[in-house]
């Protein structure tokens, strides 16, 4: 009996001592943690992408509950998460304007010339170190997929032409790829904008023409055609101001080197109906040549093949005879945005 008693007492006594110690400690050393923090963390994407500017989702949840961050600060979470956080904290929340990554290069294997063959680690940083990559162009996409590896949402792939392509549906705008690209080819633009400049080259035009068929030659046509002044040429490359109402569709249509990319599959075309009084005001504002034709006083006609769907003519029509037709892959929201833009710019 004595043999059994002692060990049971020792283990039991030590266990009891530490158990009680922990019980007392948990009362006296209790740190109050806001239960909202874990609730907020549950609804966050928990990808720890760092797009909010804080180290991970846990830090963001803490910052939001403590009022140091805005509920809309979670960029991948977007509006849904912002509203849910707002519900938990009892405040109204608006999501930040969603941003999407775009690749400012369209000179792949077919378009841009190589000056060497790169055989090494499949990584853009490594290729940049070894002789600044295989392309002649010092700024183009190398297509070795450093951004693909950096993307937490599998939104980037490298296509068969050796160019990084962003899947707009998966992209959350966290900016990891922007930081990962050694050539600074990727940037974030507001998701309402569908047209962007797909070139990052700062060389002079005649140089660019030698090694890339789709490189920007800094001809300034886009800057002159965009009357709102949202395009300026800096260091041989147009700079697009996405903060204005401009949608850059005219720049896309006018660019002789086809450097601009339009993410909309098919833009709607303008159509003039029988209400037309033949005033000719539509032809005055049309940025393209020979699209709108017709004698004064007669019903004007729009060449559907040449119309770029900019919508300038709609708001300038005295008889309200113009409407936009068709538009494959062109959703109603974009359309509304564009109408509003055009109304405000006149």
């Amino acid at each position: 009996m004595g043999d059994l008693f002692l060990p049971v007492m020792v283990v039991g006594g030590v266990g009891l001592f530490f158990g009680l110690g922990l019980a007392i400690a948990s009362k006296t050393l209790k740190v109050f943690i806001d239960p909202n923090i874990s609730r907020v963390q549950e609804i966050l994407p928990n990808a720890n992408c760092g797009a909010c500017g804080l180290p991970g989702c846990a830090a963001f949840a803490k910052a939001v509950v403590e009022g140091r961050a805005q509920p809309g600060g979670c960029i991948p979470g977007g509006e849904k998460v912002a509203v849910n956080i707002g519900d938990i904290l009892g405040v109204s929340a608006a999501a930040a304007d969603p941003m999407k990554a775009v690749v400012h290069c369209r000179g792949g294997k077919r378009e841009a010339m190589d000056r060497s063959i790169y055989k090494g680690i499949e990584d853009c940083h490594a290729a940049t170190f070894t002789g600044n990559g295989s392309k002649v162009c010092p700024d183009g996409c190398l297509g070795l997929g450093s951004c693909v590896k950096a993307c937490l949402f599998d939104a980037i792939t490298v296509n068969e032409n050796g160019l990084a392509v962003v899947d707009r549906d998966k992209c959350c705008g966290c900016g990891k790829c922007v930081a990962a690209c050694p050539r600074n080819v990727i940037s974030l633009i507001p998701s309402v904008h569908k047209v962007f400049l797909a070139c990052s080259n700062h060389d002079k035009g005649r140089l660019v023409r030698r090694y890339c068929t789709v490189g920007c030659t800094a001809c300034t046509v886009c800057a002159k055609a965009t009357l709102s002044g949202a395009i300026t040429i800096e260091n041989n490359l147009p700079v697009l101001d996405y903060g204005t109402e401009e949608i850059f569709i005219i720049a896309h249509a006018k660019c002789p080197a086809k450097c601009y990319m339009d993410l909309v599959k098919g833009r709607p075309k303008a159509n003039i109906d029988t209400k037309c009084v033949g005033c000719g005001r539509c032809a005055e504002v049309c940025p393209m040549k020979n699209v709108i034709s017709g004698a004064p006083g007669q019903r004007h006609v729009i060449d559907k093949d040449k119309c770029i769907g900019c919508g300038n003519c709609i708001n300038n029509c005295s008889a309200r005879a113009i409407s936009m037709w068709g538009g494959l892959g062109y959703d109603a929201v974009d359309m509304r945005n564009k109408r509003q833009r055009n109304t405000s710019t006149g």
Partner: peptide
């Protein structure tokens, strides 16, 4: 006994550090 002691000790340390 050591397992018991170490396990409780780490718990206790965690609380003390947090506080």
């Amino acid at each position: 006994v050591f397992i018991l002691v170490i396990a409780s000790l780490v718990q206790l340390l965690e609380m003390v550090l947090q506080k």
